[in-house]
Design a protein around this nucleic acid. Structure first.
Length: 109
DNA sequence: GAACTGACTCAGC
DNA sequence: GGCTGAGCCAGTT
């Protein structure tokens, strides 16, 4: 197995998120074996700056764009999500249960 | 080198 | 039903 950092796995999973879909920090953490490692996923995103990581497709359990504040502009995250066909109202993804992409289910097949 | 923090989440009160 | 506390790992101070 790879001895890469937990962060590298996070990046890879986030890259596999298909357009028009979004997932949560907890879902990624769970896929990596960390049930409460959601914070580390967010931390990984923090280090993902400069890489091809669609961090805008990663939101919290509520579909809320908690990480929007870390983007170049506050509306960048929402704009990217809307470009992919998702509806964002008040920094929150609408029909999040429909656009939700679970790595545990999609990648374990 | 130990303590703190950090883009979260769940359980308990 | 809303708030507080605890827990995960790694990077920073």
């Amino acid at each position: 197995m790879k001895k890469e950092s937990f962060f590298q796995d996070v990046y890879e999973v986030v890259r596999l998120i298909p357009p028009g879909r979004a997932t949560s920090y907890g879902a990624i953490a769970e896929y990596l074996g960390l049930k409460r490692g959601a914070r580390m996923v967010g931390w990984a995103m923090n280090s993902a700056h400069g890489q091809d990581i669609p961090a805008h497709r990663v939101v919290n359990r509520d579909g809320l764009l908690t990480g929007k504040h870390f983007f170049p502009a506050p509306h960048t995250m929402q704009a990217l999500l809307e470009q992919e066909g998702m509806t964002v109202v008040k920094d929150k993804i609408q029909d999040f249960d429909k656009v939700f992409w679970s790595p545990t289910e999609q990648l374990s097949l």
